[in-house]
Design a binder for these strands. Structure first.
Lengths: 191, 191
DNA sequence: TATTTTTCTTAATCTAGGTTAAGTGCTAGC
DNA sequence: GCTAGCACTTAACCTAGATTAAGAAAAATA
């Protein structure tokens, strides 16, 4: 069974018929490292599910500084939720960090599926709830933990990512500069 | 029409029948200032909708420092999403900041309603999506804006709250100490 | 009204993390 | 196999915001 159907099966049960129908509404694409799936200022038209490889979403503020919102590796969904639901231009980029196979689900098909297979509304509700919980925890961590503690949590949560993505992007995710991250890392190693 | 039905009507349409049924699954309670609706360590059993008054959710870390996750005034929902969906003990408190009339919706009734009135699944999906977007923006703001800029955004987003809640709690929400907040405020006034 | 508690302010001092800058080491194209 | 461009490191110096402490103002309670 495909990864995306396994992902869905964690929360709801689809009949073989429904599974086939769901897949028929998606497209699989292959992207090379450094491909940009979504540019800041564009309207986000799809949700992305990662079959293999790694993506990230990030924004760039006035000072030309990047901030990583999310990483997505195998089995994760990614997109620009703000732009996707408002259908207004967003301020996120979505970029490929490692050659990736990605399942694309367009907003129209997603909405269509909600009415054709109402259970999918439940699935995406649960998915969104889980994202919200993760986000709230990250927000509270940013308010109350030191950079070192945030890094430790990151390592536990995404052990595989550390070898895969440039460390300056991990620095950005936990909210410090690459220079400080480097200093902190060598401090930790000396222990 | 009650505030909570108006809130629902922003996203889905319920028949009078369905409206009555929905309300029959909720309870209205009145709470005095300083009441605690949920303690850290408890399992969250309800979603709360504020008819009037003001609530906040916050956690307390090891150092006995409070961090405000959310404020909820008239027309807002609040709860401990982590605890509510996992049914495990959470680490949030929910406290009344101004005498409040609150609509309580138990988790069981919420799930029941999902099956009885599937449209409600859509409603709560949309609600959660909007929370997620707001949270992501706040997270990015914390990573990229100064305390002053975060305060300005807060003032625009919650203009009524500034008079209503102690300023040390606004400080906590934007992620600074009360002392620094006070300094910053007088700096802004001098301009 | 007096008293207690809480919130807010101010100021001195401190520090986690930022900035700037220079140098080292990869690795991807050519 | 060279070279350009990233990614990473190190170090000196800087700053936004934290900490500590003490007092003033406001609000709750008696």
């Amino acid at each position: 069974m495909s990864l995306i159907l396994q992902n869905i099966a964690k929360h709801i049960t689809l009949s073989p018929e429904e599974q086939r129908h769901f897949l028929s509404k998606t497209e699989v694409h292959h992207f090379k490292v450094k491909s940009i799936l979504l540019h800041s200022g564009q309207i986000c038209t799809h949700s992305y599910f990662v079959n293999s490889g790694t993506l990230r979403s990030f924004n760039i503020n006035d000072n030309i500084v990047e901030h990583v919102l999310n990483f997505a590796c195998e089995g994760y969904w990614i997109g620009d939720m703000y732009s996707l639901i408002s259908q207004k231009p967003g301020n996120l980029f979505i970029e490929v960090l490692e050659d990736a196979e990605v399942v694309l689900l367009s907003k129209e098909n997603q909405e269509l599926l909600y009415t054709e297979i109402p259970k999918l509304e439940r699935f995406f509700r649960i998915l969104t709830e889980n994202s919200l919980v993760a986000n709230q925890e990250r927000l509270m961590d940013n308010l109350s933990l030191s950079a070192e503690e945030r890094f430790e949590k990151f390592c536990k949560k995404y052990p595989t990512l550390i070898q895969k993505v440039p460390q300056k992007q991990i620095a950005s995710y936990i909210g410090v500069t690459p220079e400080f991250f480097s200093k902190m890392k060598s401090r930790l190693l000396r222990k």
